[in-house]
Amino acid sequence: MRSDEERSGARGWVWWYGLFLGCLLLAAGAAETVRVVRSGDGGLAFWFGTLVGGGVLVLVGTLLLPRRPRTGFMITAIGCVAGLLPTMWTLIVPVMLVVLIVVSGSRAMVAPVRSG
């Protein structure tokens, strides 16, 4: 018998949710980078590093989740933690990032470990 995830393919809702949040962080990072460069306020390393870096990590981790669940989870979780602080003011995005950590972690712990 194949599991539900195998039947639905690698593109379950968690996969799409991770891609959405990764792209959201990248878009926010691009917008903040443009704002910082135009205004000269400073903090370019913080905004670019946390939002763009976190978005890239969330995307890479999400894409790895179907093939390497534990590695994908770790990379996704690091990206979500990086994106938490700069998006804290929105209230909703940090909750969405925590939900992604929880569901990708639960999927990673249930996934069988492939040997050799």
Rank of each mutant, 00 (worst) to 15 (best):
R2F: 09
D4Y: 10
D4L: 11
E5N: 15
E5I: 09
E6M: 12
R7T: 09
G9T: 12
G9E: 14
R11T: 14
R11Q: 12
R11C: 12
V14I: 13
V14L: 01
W16S: 13
Y17E: 00
G18C: 13
G18K: 01
G18S: 11
G18V: 02
L21R: 00
L21T: 02
G22E: 11
C23H: 10
C23N: 14
L25I: 10
A28Q: 09
E32W: 11
E32S: 11
E32L: 08
T33K: 13
T33D: 08
T33V: 15
V36H: 08
V36D: 08
V37Y: 11
V37K: 06
S39E: 15
G40N: 11
D41R: 05
D41V: 15
L44F: 09
A45I: 08
A45S: 15
F46T: 13
W47A: 03
W47C: 01
W47G: 00
F48K: 07
T50R: 07
T50D: 13
V52P: 02
G53T: 13
G54T: 01
G55V: 07
V56R: 05
V56T: 07
V58M: 03
L59F: 07
V60K: 09
V60G: 05
V60H: 10
G61A: 06
T62V: 08
L63Y: 08
L64M: 15
L64H: 04
L65M: 12
P66I: 06
P66F: 09
P66S: 07
R67A: 13
R68M: 14
R68F: 06
P69N: 06
R70T: 09
R70H: 12
T71V: 15
G72Q: 04
G72Y: 08
M74E: 11
T76G: 01
G79L: 02
C80W: 05
C80F: 07
V81Q: 01
A82C: 11
A82G: 02
L85Y: 12
L85Q: 10
P86R: 14
T87G: 02
T87A: 11
M88D: 05
W89T: 04
L91Y: 06
I92G: 00
P94G: 00
M96S: 08
V98D: 00
V98W: 01
V99R: 03
V102I: 08
V103G: 01
S104N: 02
S104R: 00
S106T: 09
R107P: 10
R107L: 12
R107D: 04
R107W: 03
A108K: 06
M109I: 02
M109P: 01
M109N: 04
V110F: 07
V110A: 12
V110S: 04
A111L: 15
P112E: 12
P112Q: 10
P112C: 04
R114P: 15
R114L: 15
S115P: 03
S115A: 13
G116P: 01
G116D: 13
